[in-house]
């Protein structure tokens, strides 16, 4: 078994309903969010620490923090 595999919390965007307002970008303390070409929010998984600030702020509530194996 790979001992390096760990559970990490990461933000995931439902890109279908994202309105690309940029509220998540403003609150992210790790600068892990960006608005990709004015269409949707994108998460930089390397930087995201899964704090959930973006999910709390998102007016459309399209961001969810999930645990993933990395």
């Amino acid at each position: 078994m790979d001992t390096k595999t760990k559970k990490r919390r990461k933000a995931f965007v439902d890109t279908n309903d994202c309105v690309a307002c940029g509220c998540c970008v403003k609150v992210c303390p790790k600068h892990a969010m960006e608005i990709w070409k004015g269409v949707m929010a994108k998460v930089d998984m390397e930087r995201c620490v899964g704090c959930g600030k973006c999910a709390k702020e998102c007016p459309a509530s399209v961001i969810e923090v999930k645990e993933v194996l990395l």
């Binding site: 309105v19 690309a20 307002c21 509220c23 702020e57 998102c58 007016p59 459309a60 509530s61």
Partner: peptide, 15 residues
């Protein structure tokens, strides 16, 4: 009623 920037969700200029 909802989140502070809820207007951004249906703002016509944003859409």
């Amino acid at each position: 009623f909802f989140k502070p920037r809820s207007w951004c969700v249906y703002c016509p200029m944003g859409t």
